[in-house]
Simulated scan of single mutants.
Amino acid sequence: MEWNGYKKELVEKAKHYIDLHYEKNITLKSLNKVLQKNPYYIQRSFKEVLGLTPLRYLHQVRINKSKELLKKHTYSITTIGLEVGYNDSAHFSTKFKEQEGITPKEFRKQILK
Rank of each mutant, 00 (worst) to 15 (best):
K47W: 10
L52E: 15
N4D: 10
K37N: 13
S45Q: 05
V11G: 05
K67P: 01
E23D: 13
T79A: 15
S76D: 08
H16K: 15
T27N: 01
N87F: 12
V84K: 00
T78V: 10
A90D: 09
Q99K: 09
L70A: 07
V49H: 03
W3D: 06
I77M: 09
L50A: 08
K29C: 08
Q60P: 02
P54L: 09
Y75L: 12
E48I: 05
F92K: 02
K37I: 10
G51P: 02
I111M: 09
F96C: 11
T79G: 12
G85F: 07
T78G: 10
L69E: 11
G5K: 12
I111P: 04
F46K: 01
K67G: 02
V11L: 05
K29R: 15
P39Y: 04
Y57D: 03
L69D: 06
A90P: 00
Y86A: 00
K72Y: 06
Q99S: 11
F107Y: 15
Q60K: 14
Y57K: 06
A14N: 07
E100F: 02
G101Q: 07
E106Q: 14
D19Q: 10
I26W: 03
K97L: 09
S45F: 02
K97W: 02
F46Y: 08
Q43T: 03
L35N: 03
Y17C: 07
K67V: 06
V61R: 04
K71E: 12
Y22T: 05
H91K: 10
Y17H: 13
P54I: 12
K113V: 09
Y17Q: 09
Q99Y: 11
L28V: 05
T53Y: 11
T94S: 13
F107G: 01
K13Q: 12
H91A: 14
G5M: 11
